[in-house]
Design a protein around this nucleic acid. Structure first.
Lengths: 345, 345
DNA sequence: GTTAGCACTCCTATGAACCGAGTGCTAAAT
DNA sequence: ATTTAGCACTCGGTTCATAGGAGTGCTAAC
């Protein structure tokens, strides 16, 4: 079932207008728009058809029309005019990279902040997955007789640390030997296979050199076992409060903010998106708290390696065009910066 | 100006009742309470006096009374019955310490979470000031030709890391020598005087041993310069949304949540409190977003050393008695645990 | 000093009346 | 065969009056 050009035009104008005003759009106000040259009665007929097809809805029997999720979906897929970013936005985004910063985290944190300020929505950035990074160095620093800290440094400059138990009365030189072996064997190994390698290769070696090696090995393996997971960064967590659709519905706000606080659920939401730009509208997100929200994600990478995701969470009545533009632009910039950094490592 | 016993009783019952119900308290409903044996007319007279003295207020000319900030203050200072914790609460708090955990942060994070769940308010915990901790070990790990990571481990097991620039074409053995000197000279030095010592003592030594020492020194000092600040942990950030006083006032919620997101302001709020339990009511907090909120803080320590603060942020209509009980209990437990940990280090 | 009684105040809920924005349908115009 | 003008109708929102209830302050009696 194809829509006529006129229906497309009307759908587009309805969505655009509603995104701007947050008010149901009536036939008369539509007929006054420049781009529309036919009468309100015609529009009413077309709107009735569009409603029949499920692209728009009424909030009550004599109200104007509002886009449905299907309507937004069609709009995003077919009608979106890829709005050029304005110079202001470009300058602001470029400013993220103005300072020379060597820590990913800082850059990513700033990206999140600036994205949320530009859009007045909530931004979410999934940091680079540490697990594909490679080990640069392991250090073990005993704190006291019982415990020690294991510090892992990756080739990207990421530092992780864990506290673990030491075997009783361990010889300091044994510890040193162990660290040497670990570094020798595990340098440049991706973090995600670290644990595997420890048991397959390192265990053997330790057995030969270290008295009572198994307790120590167990401690170290334990320390590295927890998934070295990606970090989430947020910007404008409370921006949703200023969206008019939530003004009379504290419970919606509450469930949304609660979801944001429960990082696990945000992880799921963000991580399973495909490479490139992706738009999920309302219930497409499969989370009841997101019923009136859309999520736009964009992945960034270094070289061919996909690293993480930046996302904007806003109401379904979101400025899709602008947000997509911003995300495209930022993800490209992030990728090229990271590619450079990765190259020189 | 002293209040009569009867006025005290009435004030107390009004505050207690309002804390429970969030509804203005009328003379008739008061007269029905068990602990009150006189008529509603008498109560009305007393209430008029209490209002004249500024302890209670009307929301409109024919409404029941509501405690004023002054009324809460008097209640907290003089009327609070130090409610014993119930067994349930005690068990829950004890459970924070059930697992043997060696990282402060974990314990503190759990404390924040559990406090907020017990109270349904927002909890804020200021972690131990890293600056009074002593240096255990410094490690420097070069990432590439230009940059390196400095890792600082404290005697409490806290790990900090910073990226900094390396001098061009630095000799690896020089770097090693430097690290040795740093560890030799700076071990057991409190972090807050680290920078001082670097310039006063280490600079001299480096000068003697290392070619081109000043660039390196500068980089290292730079890396340690940023204040190693205390960390904030939150629990139940969105709990305020369920307080009825905010239900019709999104803007209040917004400014409150915004304040919470701006950690700097929370820092100021929390840090400047005296040792022990402290209650700040409404505008006593000097922050407009906190107008309808109270903050109760409790410090915790290890031995004589004051370490940090746990706090509960709730509406002025807060269960002062219970919250104070919980905070007292938890801060005592935290302190004794930390004292033990500190002792064995 | 305490209390009963009463007039008064003000909030809240309810419902009627009305307006305006918007629709659907029909019939006329193009 | 489309498009448009016209019109009856619907429904949410606002305004207004009304009634009820919770509460107060005051006065006079206990």
């Amino acid at each position: 079932m194809l829509l006529t050009d006129r229906q497309l035009l009307i759908l587009q104008v309805i969505v655009d207008d509603f995104i701007r005003s947050a008010q149901p759009v009536g036939s008369r106000s539509l007929s006054k728009k420049e781009e529309i040259s036919f009468s309100s009665a015609t529009i009413r007929n077309e709107m009735a058809d569009l409603e029949g097809l499920g692209f728009i809805e009424k909030t009550h029997s004599s109200s104007g029309r509002v886009p449905s999720e299907k309507g937004y979906r069609y709009y995003v897929d077919h009608l979106l005019s890829p709005k050029r970013l304005n110079q202001q936005d470009i300058t602001t985004i470029k400013s993220i990279f103005a300072e020379r910063i060597y820590e990913f985290e800082k850059i990513i944190q700033r990206s999140a902040k600036i994205l949320s300020e530009l859009t007045n929505y909530t931004s979410i950035v999934l940091g680079p997955a540490a697990s594909i990074n490679k080990l640069k160095r392991i250090q073990i620093i005993p704190l006291n007789k019982e415990t020690a800290i294991a510090i892992i440094v990756t080739d990207t400059g990421h530092v992780e640390n864990r506290t673990f138990h030491l075997p009783p009365a361990i010889d300091p030189s044994d510890l040193e030997k162990t660290v040497n072996i670990l570094n020798e064997r595990l340098t440049n190994v991706p973090l995600e296979v670290l644990n595997d390698k420890i048991f397959k290769e390192v265990a053997m070696l330790l057995k030969q050199h270290i008295h009572n090696y198994d307790f120590l090995l167990y401690g170290i393996a334990e320390a590295f076992k927890m998934p070295v997971s990606e970090k989430l960064f947020f910007g404008g967590k409370t921006n949703m409060l200023s969206q008019p659709e939530f003004h009379n519905d504290i419970s919606k706000i509450r469930s949304l903010l609660n979801m944001i606080e429960e990082e696990d659920r945000v992880f799921d939401l963000i991580r399973k998106n495909p490479i490139g730009i992706n738009v999920k509208i309302g219930r497409e997100n499969d989370i009841s708290a997101m019923e009136n929200c859309s999520l736009i994600t964009a992945t960034y990478s270094a070289g061919k390696e996909n690293l993480g995701t930046i996302a904007i969470l806003g109401p379904t009545r979101m400025e899709y065009s602008r947000v997509i533009g911003l995300l495209e632009f930022l993800s490209k910039d992030l990728s090229s910066l990271l590619s450079k950094l990765y190259q020189t490592r």
